[in-house]
Design a binder for these strands. Sequence first.
DNA 1: AATCCCGCCAACCGCGTAACT
DNA 2: CAGTTACGCGGTTGGCGGGAT
Length: 254
Amino acid sequence: MGRAPCCDKANVKKGPWSPEEDAKLKTYIEKYGTGGNWIALPQKIGLKRCGKSCRLRWLNYLRPNIKHGGFSEEEDRIILSLYISIGSRWSIIAAQLPGRTDNDIKNYWNTRLKKKLLGKQLPNQSRNVKQEGKKNYTNNNLSHVSITTEGSSSQSSTTSWSEINMPLYHKMASNQMSVASSLIGSVVTYPSELDEMFNFNQVKLEGLDGLYGEISTNWSNEVSELMFPSMTPSLQGMQQLCGPVDEQVHLGMQ
DNA sequence: AATCCCGCCAACCGCGTAACT
DNA sequence: CAGTTACGCGGTTGGCGGGAT
């Protein structure tokens, strides 16, 4: 017994959308909206498409004010900092970049941004981070998640998720963009390990606002030290990637 | 000129979960 | 409260185009 298909696969067209299909979908949604039911939408319009496919097409391509390609350095910075802090939560990252879709950002990250970072790999600084109990969390109880870091030596340590990320989220809520530049300087020095390092950041968020309570104003240093306690932060990697980054972290709250 | 290779990106798939009955 | 349905998300795939050989 598998999951029931969302539509009749045999009678559904797949593959690239034609201009006619685009026009039908766009015209209808602009006129009547989605009606809150994507599954029924293609039948109403007379499209032989799956509702999920219609939804995706609308969200990623037909929706007004969608931007494609041409990511700015500022956008790079934002994507990078959010990836560092929350992992591959593309929809949340996209929400911080008006006109960008999660799919676009995901593609951009996987095909370009990640490679930019990998290309600047520093030798002999490997570090593995494993997430344990990845799914052992709820939106309101993030502190239950813990991560284990394993250095190249035999030593290992366990740090609670909230210890690492609570200051970060709080700061993002109050000053999202400052987070980008402040984090970048301390983390991007170790690009080759990003994927492994960031595996622990899989906690689902409802948004970036108002998540946590009071924190120290020295939060950025705390975060970087918690994440990489044995490493000395350097700005070099980020400056190569995104241009000059202030050595001193300037935050709106300070 | 032909073929191969690789990067990019649109689209699909399957899962988790919210909403509904 | 349990079962069902639909939505939203992230991972993955496949086709296309352009550069390299």
